[in-house]
Lab assay of single mutants.
Amino acid sequence: TEYKLVVVGAGGVGKSALTIQLIQNHFVDEYDPTIEDSYRKQVVIDGETCLLDILDTAGQEEYSAMRDQYMRTGEGFLCVFAINNTKSFEDIHQYREQIKRVKDSDDVPMVLVGNKCDLAARTVESRQAQDLARSYGIPYIETSAKTRQGVEDAFYTLVREIRQH
């Protein structure tokens, strides 16, 4: 089974770092803004072998026109913010609204991801993020692309959301 996953969120929150940590098991430290990259990885989730087709997208506003296209083809979405960047957390709402509009559905598989949880300088409390996820009816997972904490959990949870859909 193949799953088309799309990673969305503001610029600099760590979308590529999360994806590369999942696929290649290493942490990319330097920031190089993405336009669009796709990665494929075969994994076993709950005993089922599946192929993850992951689209890593641009957070930069100037590429926002490309969003409709990949939102149409994606089956599930990782909505990523950084726990030390309140603005990126506030941006999640717009991504969710755009996904709902493009998919013409209120019920699209999504996982809210709070990345950079290895950093002490948190400005978005776990509780705020949990409340937001609960209001959307989606899971919330904290990750660190640096330490790998929660990385597999985030992507695998999204696959489970798609399966249950």
Rank of each mutant, 00 (worst) to 15 (best):
E2H: 04
E2I: 04
Y3F: 10
L5V: 11
V6P: 02
V6G: 03
V6F: 07
V7F: 06
V7L: 12
V7H: 03
V7E: 01
V7M: 08
V7S: 03
V8N: 01
G9T: 00
A10K: 10
A10G: 10
G11P: 06
G12L: 12
V13T: 14
V13H: 09
V13E: 03
G14W: 00
G14S: 00
G14P: 00
G14D: 01
K15F: 01
S16K: 00
A17F: 01
A17R: 03
A17N: 12
L18Y: 02
L18G: 04
L18K: 02
T19A: 13
T19E: 02
Q21A: 13
Q21E: 07
L22T: 14
L22R: 11
L22F: 09
L22D: 00
L22E: 14
L22P: 01
I23D: 04
Q24F: 02
N25A: 12
H26R: 02
H26M: 14
H26T: 06
F27I: 02
F27Y: 13
F27K: 01
F27D: 00
V28C: 10
D29Y: 06
E30V: 04
E30D: 05
E30K: 02
Y31P: 03
D32L: 03
P33M: 03
P33R: 05
P33N: 02
T34R: 00
T34F: 02
T34Q: 00
I35F: 04
I35L: 05
E36C: 01
D37L: 00
D37V: 00
D37H: 00
D37E: 01
S38G: 06
S38D: 02
Y39S: 00
Y39H: 01
Y39Q: 00
R40A: 05
R40V: 08
K41I: 12
Q42I: 05
Q42G: 12
V43S: 08
V44K: 06
V44P: 08
I45N: 09
D46L: 07
D46K: 09
D46M: 08
G47I: 05
E48T: 12
E48H: 08
E48V: 09
E48R: 08
T49H: 10
T49S: 11
C50L: 09
C50D: 05
C50I: 07
C50Q: 07
L51E: 15
L51V: 14
L51D: 14
L51S: 13
L51P: 07
L52Q: 02
L52P: 02
L52R: 01
D53H: 03
D53N: 04
I54H: 00
I54K: 00
L55W: 11
D56P: 01
D56W: 00
T57C: 10
G59K: 04
E61L: 15
E61V: 15
E61C: 14
Y63W: 11
Y63T: 13
Y63D: 09
S64L: 10
S64Q: 08
S64A: 07
S64E: 09
A65D: 09
A65V: 14
A65C: 10
A65E: 08
A65P: 14
M66H: 14
M66I: 13
M66E: 11
R67P: 15
D68C: 05
D68A: 05
D68K: 07
D68P: 05
D68E: 09
D68W: 04
Y70C: 13
Y70P: 08
M71R: 07
R72K: 09
R72Y: 10
R72C: 08
R72M: 08
R72S: 13
R72E: 11
T73Q: 15
G74W: 04
E75Q: 12
E75I: 12
F77I: 06
F77C: 03
F77M: 04
L78M: 12
L78K: 01
C79V: 14
C79K: 02
C79Q: 03
C79W: 09
V80R: 01
I83E: 11
N84D: 14
N85C: 11
N85Q: 09
T86F: 12
T86Q: 13
S88M: 08
F89S: 05
F89M: 11
F89H: 06
F89A: 08
E90A: 11
D91L: 15
D91K: 15
D91F: 14
D91I: 12
I92W: 09
I92G: 03
I92L: 13
I92Y: 06
I92F: 14
H93S: 14
Q94T: 12
Y95Q: 04
Y95W: 10
Y95A: 15
R96W: 14
R96S: 08
R96H: 08
E97N: 12
Q98G: 10
I99L: 10
I99K: 03
I99T: 03
I99E: 01
I99V: 07
K100C: 10
K100M: 07
R101S: 08
R101T: 07
R101N: 10
V102W: 12
K103F: 14
D104W: 06
D104N: 13
D104H: 12
S105Y: 08
S105A: 10
D106Q: 14
D106W: 12
D106S: 12
D106I: 08
D107E: 08
D107I: 10
V108Q: 04
V108M: 09
V108S: 04
P109C: 08
P109Y: 05
P109L: 07
P109T: 06
P109H: 10
M110I: 11
M110C: 03
M110N: 01
M110P: 00
V111A: 05
V111E: 00
L112C: 05
V113G: 02
G114P: 01
K116I: 14
K116S: 14
C117A: 12
D118N: 04
L119S: 15
L119P: 10
L119K: 14
L119H: 15
A120M: 06
A121C: 10
A121P: 13
R122K: 10
R122V: 11
R122I: 08
T123K: 15
T123D: 11
T123A: 12
T123W: 06
V124M: 09
V124I: 12
V124H: 09
E125Y: 08
E125V: 08
E125M: 10
S126Y: 09
S126T: 10
R127P: 06
R127K: 14
R127N: 08
R127T: 12
R127H: 07
R127V: 11
R127Y: 07
Q128T: 10
Q130F: 07
Q130M: 09
Q130P: 05
D131T: 06
D131V: 05
L132A: 06
L132V: 09
L132Q: 05
A133V: 04
R134L: 07
S135R: 11
Y136K: 05
Y136R: 05
G137M: 02
I138W: 06
P139W: 03
P139D: 10
Y140P: 01
Y140N: 01
I141G: 02
I141C: 07
I141P: 01
I141T: 06
E142T: 04
E142W: 02
E142K: 06
T143N: 06
T143M: 15
S144L: 02
S144A: 13
A145K: 02
A145I: 03
K146V: 14
K146A: 14
K146S: 15
T147D: 15
R148D: 10
R148V: 13
R148T: 12
Q149H: 08
G150K: 07
G150T: 12
V151A: 13
V151F: 15
V151M: 13
V151L: 13
E152L: 12
E152K: 13
E152W: 08
E152H: 07
E152N: 09
E152P: 05
E152M: 14
A154L: 15
A154G: 05
A154K: 01
F155M: 11
F155A: 04
Y156L: 13
Y156H: 11
Y156T: 13
Y156G: 12
L158R: 01
L158N: 00
V159T: 05
R160K: 12
I162Q: 03
I162W: 04
R163F: 09
R163W: 09
Q164C: 08
Q164T: 08
Q164G: 15
Q164I: 04
Q164F: 04
Q164A: 08
